[in-house]
Design a protein around this nucleic acid. Structure first.
Lengths: 340, 340
DNA sequence: GTGAAAGCGCTAACAT
DNA sequence: ATGTTAGCGCTTTCAC
């Protein structure tokens, strides 16, 4: 209950000597108002420094011109660029973005979706792990929802994501061309769609080039530094031979390198290591990390575009957008440069 | 205009066989409703899966239960933790956070403040460079605003920030104790309050311990990698002797180290380098970077706390909160560990 | 071309 | 204890 009373459309009407209906027409640039009145109203708006009350508009129009953006954690280096892409695109069309961090916990994800719905957002952009089977109410959402980065199996939501399978394929193809033919694959939980796609891409490359791909060289761990470290530790403990590693994300790759270093194995001379995501650290780490760059900022923009399509044209049929990844070759796989 | 009509308080009233006033009372946990009716209403709410419309509430109560958070750029590694701190604290009390990126441009900052006001936010958390003298309208903001990270000179807004002067003092004291007595100070624009405080702290330490502090060893550049690189380049070009560098932020420190390396000077053996901020990269860079950690997450939380005080108790007198920085000693200044 | 008035979903003052 | 109703600021019929 803070504050001075805001000026309303009524004040403007009074100041301009017209009815509030006329003011509303001018504000919304509707035809059918005489030039003189348009001018009078504009002067009054200027003079009073009037800003329409978006809340009242939202109530009347049942359109809040705001959306929710649900992500696991803004402190995870993957997300700032995503958020920025979304925010920039939304700002251009005058929408507000409400940011929500869930730490990937389904309960938090559910809570936030309901929170956003009560806030009457016009749409939701979602990155998370919510299970569609266990949450059938998702099908009856009153507003459109677009998925980013990862799909939810069985869910009827259009998804914007990178071609993880292709990215992984490119990595392993690159390693093979560098002369590495015994490649270990370390990834996250085996149920995770991202894990599945990246592992499959790697296997496809190995198979296509006719190199072995033994089960014990494929490890499922966690998408973290510790996960990568542990995986390599296991590989070595089990005396599995490898001269290349594809880690399913950059933090795992760095964990892997630190572990290799502990065992006195040199990267890239003894083992070439490649990551995925191209987080900022990848370029600065020593050795600089070869990795797959995702067009993250663009992903945010495209998701907004999809959402806006649904908002405006009420398009019912929307399709997934699969973005192309890019291989960034740096020193950890024997590359020469330190591309930023 | 997407979507199925939401269930309203009217539907609940009908379902429960009571008036909407009674439903409202139950929802707002007001006393004076008989046990039976409370129960009936609760059942109806459950059955219809009713969520109050926050927009309608906001209009009625002139309180949107949302705030704006204006920062330069979420992709700048300093901000994710800040945003997370704010978001977590706000979520706990059921507020939505609208995120805005300005790139530090005053026009964007002004535009966003007005945008947020039209959205009827209850308060604004602001990190930016808006000049108070050139924007006197800031004094008449209809909602409270709290500044984070940097003050605006002359502005009547409570500010939450780290003790930059002390942080810099600690850095230089540490360098002196490491036996470095010719310390160059490289900082950002000389008008920036942050620059001023950090340089002053450094000078105070030098003076207090009786070491020289010549003008030509204090350089004003930019808070970027290039800024740090260039500054060291200038230092060397001008043949100024130094065995320690205090860079006013981490990216400058890294730029400085890269430049030193180019000239064949070893860090920390030839030159000890210390940064400020403790961005994620600082721990992973080789050599790992000694720096000053700001309690950034906490800063966000405290700012929320200040804002809420103003929102609820209408406290007019609020004071700046100055947080204590922490020196994190790593290898770039001769430390032993790689503290994460 | 312009204005009066209904109504979006909710809360609170007022009536019963 | 419960219900009726005015009104938050706006848009949009519907009259004139």
């Amino acid at each position: 209950m803070n504050g001075i009373k805001q000026t309303t459309i009524k004040d403007v009407a009074q100041e301009a000597g017209v009815s509030i209906a006329t003011v509303s027409r001018v504000l919304n640039e509707q035809s059918g108002v005489s030039k003189e009145l348009v001018e009078q109203v504009k002067v009054a708006v200027q003079k009073l420094n009037y800003q329409p009350n978006a809340i009242a508009r939202a109530l009347k129009n049942s359109e809040s011109r705001s959306i929710g953006l649900i992500i696991p954690d803004i402190e995870n280096p993957f997300f700032p660029a995503l958020v920025r892409g979304v925010e920039d695109a939304m700002q251009e069309i005058g929408y507000a973005v409400i940011l929500c961090n869930t730490d990937g916990q389904p309960e938090a994800e559910e809570r936030y979706i309901k929170f956003l719905l009560s806030k009457q957002v016009d749409g939701i952009l979602f990155v998370g792990n919510l299970n569609f089977v266990q949450n059938p109410w998702l099908a009856a959402l009153p507003v459109p929802m677009i998925l980013l980065d990862r799909k939810i199996v069985g869910a009827p939501f259009p998804t914007v994501l990178v071609d993880n399978e292709l990215g992984a394929f490119m990595v392993v193809e690159h390693l093979i061309k560098q002369g590495r033919h015994h490649i270990a694959i370390i990834s996250g939980k085996s149920q995770s769609p991202i894990s599945i796609d990246r592992v499959n891409g790697a296997i496809r490359a190995l198979t296509m080039y006719g190199y072995p791909c033994p089960k014990q060289s494929i490890l499922n761990s966690y998408f973290t530094f510790e996960g990568g470290y542990q995986a390599v530790n296991d590989l070595i403990a089990n005396e599995i031979f490898f001269d290349g590693i594809f880690a399913a994300n950059d933090m795992m790759a760095i964990g892997a390198i630190e572990c290799l270093t502990k065992y006195g194995r040199h990267v890239p001379d003894d083992v070439a290591v490649v990551g995925f995501d191209d987080i900022r650290l990848a370029a600065w780490y020593k050795p600089s990390l070869t990795t797959v760059r995702q067009p993250v900022y663009e992903m945010g923009q495209i998701a907004v575009q999809s959402l806006v399509e649904q908002l405006t044209h009420s398009k019912t049929e929307t399709f997934d957008k699969i973005l192309k990844p890019e291989l960034v070759i740096r020193r950890s796989s024997g590359g020469k440069g330190d591309t930023l």
